[in-house]
Amino acid sequence: MIKDSVKKALQELFPVPEPVVEEAPPTDAAEGEEAGAKKKAKKEEPRINGVLERDYNACGYHLDVQLDPGELLAAVLILDKADFFIESITGVDWIKEDQLEVVYDFSRFDFDLCRVVIRTRTPRPDPKVPTITKIYTGASWHERETHDFFGIKFEGHPHLVPLLLPEDADFHPLLKDFKP
């Protein structure tokens, strides 16, 4: 199963609190069935970086990875090696926590179904995430779109100009404090 091998490879990115990472996946996998209620409780405290295995039927994806922007390229490289294709990149504005989340979706072309979601958070006043266009060329438009909507700067992006918004747009409509 590609899911397990990818999970193992991704877990190696988080060596610091050994027990937490070990603990998190099995508990979550076990309680996947009634994920809804449990997750609500979990959201109270900020999530610790790591790999979570999600219940596919409830969420629609298998692996949920949260990491620091610095580890992003390493994680994406692992997925690239494992023949994942990029589905989309988007952002979520967590205004209460004063953070912006960038969400990367990856999936596979073969029948070994595995959807991986990578999340990374960046401070809201100065959102910066490294670009992954060097690994996945197709991330370019997705990153430009996310830049349009959230104002997240993808460092190293070759052509970070507005894509869907007008060329001179200086607003970011999907930020929660956006006033049209």
């Binding site: 994920a35 809804g36 209620a37 997750k39 609500k40 959201k43 409830a58 969420c59 629609g60 994806y61 949920d64 589905e87 989309s88 988007t90 979520v92 969400v103 979706d105 999936s107 959807r115 979601v117």
Partner: peptide, 25 residues
């Protein structure tokens, strides 16, 4: 929908259409 992050992909005439719903309840 309960709090959470949901993803659904379908095959449309043009390919893989994905929809992500992040719900705050």
């Amino acid at each position: 929908p309960p709090v959470g992050d949901y993803y659904q992909a379908v095959e449309t005439a043009r390919g893989n259409f994905g929809i992500r719903i992040v719900s705050d309840g």
